[in-house]
């Protein structure tokens, strides 16, 4: 009887948390249009968020995408021409870099860098009663703290995904010049032939969804901190763990929708 009681209590708690999280997401999304119409109040936060999440992560993204593009080209050009399918390298580059790895790797890097930072920052704000101060002075903390971070992280993820593609495909071209030299025109022609608008749309949708998930999870767990500073690292860890899980699930669902 005791176990049944415990299972029931646990279920009710989880359902409550889920409903709370859904309510939080709805409230954040409801505040987005209001933030955009009254942008001046939080524009500095938004700019700094793009600077931190987007610009400062550019070097990491560029390095990783160059490396991945290089590996794909070397492996592909060593294997595919043996089957007379050398041109498949373009399709593989598009599938791996544009459609799959670009969005998810960018989102993982953003989660690791910015997700933890946001959760930590918001946790500290809660512990130092800054959130309470916002509320007391009549400022909606969701609109002025969470929404700029949501927009900034989402937009940054989208831009970083674009840069990931550019560096990945450019890096592969540079490597191609050492392995199997082709003209830039031929290379881009092959890439653009393999690229479709569906690939572009899939990549854009993924990057936007992943950015939103990263920001929402990070802010949610950051605001979950109650009073002790020892809760902050726990919130950061949870935000990364839950964020990565949700990213992978969302990636699978979007990829599934792409093939349906």
């Amino acid at each position: 009887m005791h176990h049944v009681e415990r299972i029931g209590a646990s279920t009710i708690t989880r359902v409550d948390r889920f409903i709370y999280a859904v309510g939080y997401v709805v409230e954040v999304l409801r505040q987005v249009p209001r933030f955009l119409t009254h942008r001046r109040t939080g524009s500095r936060v938004l700019t700094m968020q793009v600077l931190f999440t987007g610009v400062e992560a550019l070097s990491v993204i560029a390095t990783i995408s160059l490396g991945i593009g290089t590996v794909i080209v070397i492996q592909g050009l060593s294997l595919l021409p043996q089957f007379g399918q050398g041109r498949l390298i373009y399709s593989i580059l598009i599938i791996v870099i544009t459609r799959e790895l670009g969005p998810i790797l960018t989102a993982l890097i953003v989660t690791a860098r910015s997700g933890t930072a946001i959760a930590t920052e918001l946790g500290n704000m809660v512990v130092s009663h800054e959130i309470e101060a916002y509320s007391i002075t009549g400022i909606n903390p969701i609109r002025h703290i969470v929404v700029p971070r949501l927009i900034g992280v989402t937009f940054s993820t989208f831009l970083l995904n674009l840069y990931f593609n550019v560096f990945g495909l450019l890096g592969s071209f540079v490597v191609t010049q050492f392995v199997n030299p082709v003209s830039l025109q031929e290379y881009w022609s092959g890439l653009l032939e393999a690229l479709s608008m569906t690939d572009v749309a899939s990549s854009i949708v993924k990057s936007l969804v992943f950015g939103a998930i990263t920001a929402l999870v990070a802010t949610f767990h950051g605001l979950q901190v109650e009073r002790s500073s020892t809760e902050i690292p726990v919130a950061a860890i949870r935000s990364v763990g839950r964020g990565i899980t949700l990213l992978i699930v969302a990636n699978a669902l979007i990829t599934l929708a792409y093939y349906l």
Partner: peptide, 22 residues
């Protein structure tokens, strides 16, 4: 941030135009 965004938008436009031509 402006440069970061403008470059990205320019790349996107170029990509879409090239895609359309190709």
């Amino acid at each position: 941030v402006g440069v970061f965004v403008i470059v990205a938008i320019a790349l996107t436009v170029i990509l879409i135009v090239l895609l359309g031509v190709n």
